[in-house]
């Protein structure tokens, strides 16, 4: 746990943890509202957004890519709603139509345009490049207090920290509104809570988290972090605040354990090369969910638990 750890593992691990938490927080409300797959749809449409942003600006820069991805996410939400209403189609199918079409368009534009010279491809979009977010200038724990070394931190770290702080702040500020409108929409409306705005805001925050995380860690982590930690947390407790805390703990655990297993696991098994950290983090979150399904104290529906104990 010395200089090498700080240089090669600390920053990607931190970014992974921040991304996992930023996605897990809105995920808690999405799964309770049965909108879990919005995260899936958003992470698919991020690709066309980024490709179009690149074609317009011609550079692989952070800001235009974020704007493009956010724009695509917004467009997708609007299109899903439009297809659902105009065609009278159930939301799941409407979602399936929209995000696959946009993804196909993204792949097509990517293949047609000359993007081979830059680091922009589908696989990168899916798997991210968590391992490459290393802190070259660091030479030990002391670097944490060295302004010169701190200045060379990968730019993804502060960005992800910002996105994570934003989701935490919004969750805390709108806690009551979110809670009431998630569990009892009619009651929330009667209390004068702007239910539609809360729902749209939640999807927007999810999109922001997905877009910020996507750039650093790829869409696999985004999809699994939206769902697995909150789903596992839901099986641990009946209280929403406890569920959110559990989900943060599970997200952190998945990111840290996944990253460590990806980096060091193969070495323990005698292999030479590390495996994909993003994939491993998703896998670990799945294992946690599976364990929660089997051993979670509140895994079953209320009636069933009582019926089976008789």
């Amino acid at each position: 746990m010395g200089a090498e750890f700080v240089q090669f593992s600390l920053t990607p691990m931190l970014i992974g943890v921040l991304a996992a938490i930023a996605c897990a927080l809105p995920g808690n409300f999405l799964i309770l509202r049965r909108q879990a797959l919005i995260g899936d749809a958003i992470s698919h449409v991020v690709l066309p957004g980024i490709v179009v942003a690149f074609l317009i600006t011609g550079v692989v820069a952070t800001l235009p890519m974020l704007v493009g991805a956010a724009g695509a996410a917004l467009l997708a939400v609007v299109l899903i709603e439009g297809v659902r209403r105009l065609g009278g189609i159930e939301p799941g199918a409407a979602m399936g139509v929209v995000f696959t079409t946009m993804f196909a368009a993204g792949v097509l534009i990517l293949e047609q345009s000359d993007t081979s010279s830059v680091h922009l491809d589908v696989e990168h979009a899916l798997m991210g490049n968590l391992e490459s977010l290393v802190w070259f200038r660091a030479d030990g724990w002391g670097s944490l207090f060295d302004p010169v070394a701190l200045a060379s931190l990968p730019e993804e770290l502060p960005r992800m920290a910002l996105a994570c702080a934003l989701t935490i702040a919004l969750t805390l500020i709108f806690w009551r509104w979110l809670k009431i409108s998630t569990f009892d929409e009619a009651f929330a409306r009667a209390m004068g809570i702007p239910v539609r705005a809360v729902g749209f805001g939640l999807v927007t925050v999810a999109a922001i988290a997905a877009v910020a995380a996507f750039d650093a860690v790829g869409s696999i982590i985004v999809i699994s972090m939206f769902i697995c930690p909150p789903a596992a947390a839901r099986l641990m407790t009946n209280s929403l605040s406890h569920q959110v805390l559990w989900s943060v703990a599970f997200a952190t655990l998945s990111a840290v354990a996944g990253f460590a297993l990806a980096g060091y696991g193969p070495l323990w098994l005698g292999a030479v090369n590390a495996v994909s950290a993003a994939g491993m983090i998703a896998t670990v979150s799945g294992v946690i969910l599976a364990l929660a399904c089997v051993f979670g104290p509140h895994a079953r529906r209320l009636g069933e638990a009582a019926a089976n104990s008789n």
Binding site: R34, I281, S285, A299
Partner: peptide, 27 residues
């Protein structure tokens, strides 16, 4: 078996299986 809704199950399976597949691809 659990009280999770089907869409959560879909999302979880999707992300986790795909993630594991990516791990195997790097292997």
């Amino acid at each position: 078996r659990t009280r999770l809704s089907e869409d959560a199950a879909i999302g979880a399976v999707l992300g986790v299986f795909f993630g594991f597949g990516v791990v195997l691809l790097t292997v």
